[in-house]
Amino acid sequence: MTLRNIFGKRSSSAVARERLQLILAHERAETGRPDLVITLREEILEVIAKHVSVERDKVKITLDRGEGVSTLGVDIELPLSSAKKLTAEKEKKAA
């Protein structure tokens, strides 16, 4: 126990411990499926590519491993032309 602890500042070892517990919980769950994010990204892109032309380098994939839950973010830039194509297709179907 040091003065720093009394004043409520967490020690670096406490931070280390929590970071490790979190990342290892995720890594242990992912054993056998380390490529989950890659699989998800490819399949999501395939579905979208059916409807719009997607530029590969305009796709941003983010992953946040949180406590108990992870969030996968897929950010795809849809060019105006393909958006138009999509509306046109929809209208055609509706007609």
């Binding site: 040091t2 720093r4 602890n5 020690s11 670096s12 070892s13 411990r17 517990q21 290892l24």
Partner: peptide, 16 residues
């Protein structure tokens, strides 16, 4: 250093 909280303690590593 472990006592000062600047290094992971034995118990921390064992628990993990």
């Amino acid at each position: 250093r472990a006592d000062r909280g600047d290094m992971l303690k034995t118990e921390d590593v064992l628990e993990i």
